[in-house]
């Protein structure tokens, strides 16, 4: 009797359209393109970029803290085409491309859980 051969599935390569990595035409790469050059050069240890990295880390830390403070808060989102929605904020991905929200109140009903694409938003606001 022949032994069955296991099917070997390779992970998706970096050039796949849904990949999260290195394909220069992927949405993730496009969104991050402006931030890549600086980081790489700073890693090389150029002194004038130290200051840039310091400013970057201060600004980023403050932004991440503001996201932390938003957790479980009721947030109003202003989207394109004058669409206004409200939801309870859950989390964001590191690139600020998607927000996870709960109880999204849309014009056609309430969606229990949803992902909002940040490129679709103009602004969001909340009260503390």
């Amino acid at each position: 009797m022949k032994t069955p051969v296991p099917v070997l599935r390779l992970p998706r390569g970096p050039d796949h359209p849904d990949s999260r990595g290195f394909d220069p035409s992927s949405p993730r790469f496009q969104a991050l393109r402006s931030t890549r050059g600086g980081a790489a050069a700073a890693a090389a240890g150029l002194p004038e970029l130290r200051e840039e990295q310091q400013a970057r880390s201060l600004l980023r830390q403050r932004y991440l803290r503001s996201l932390l403070a938003m957790r479980d808060a009721q947030v109003r989102f202003r989207m394109y085409e004058r669409v206004h929605v409200e939801a309870r904020f859950g989390a964001s991905d590191i690139d600020v491309l998607n927000f996870q929200v709960s109880d999204l109140q849309t014009p056609i009903g309430v969606q229990k859980e949803a992902l909002l694409r940040c490129p679709d938003m103009i602004s969001y606001s909340l009260e503390l």
């Binding site: 600004l59 980023r60 103009i122 969001y124 009260e127």
Partner: peptide, 25 residues
């Protein structure tokens, strides 16, 4: 200003003591 998304975090202190935060992407 978030250095990744360039979003601006604006704060308004209201007379009622509440703080209103608006972020423009």
């Amino acid at each position: 200003v978030d250095p990744v998304s360039a979003s601006v975090v604006l704060v308004n202190f209201q007379d009622t003591g509440r703080t209103c935060v608006t972020v423009v992407m």
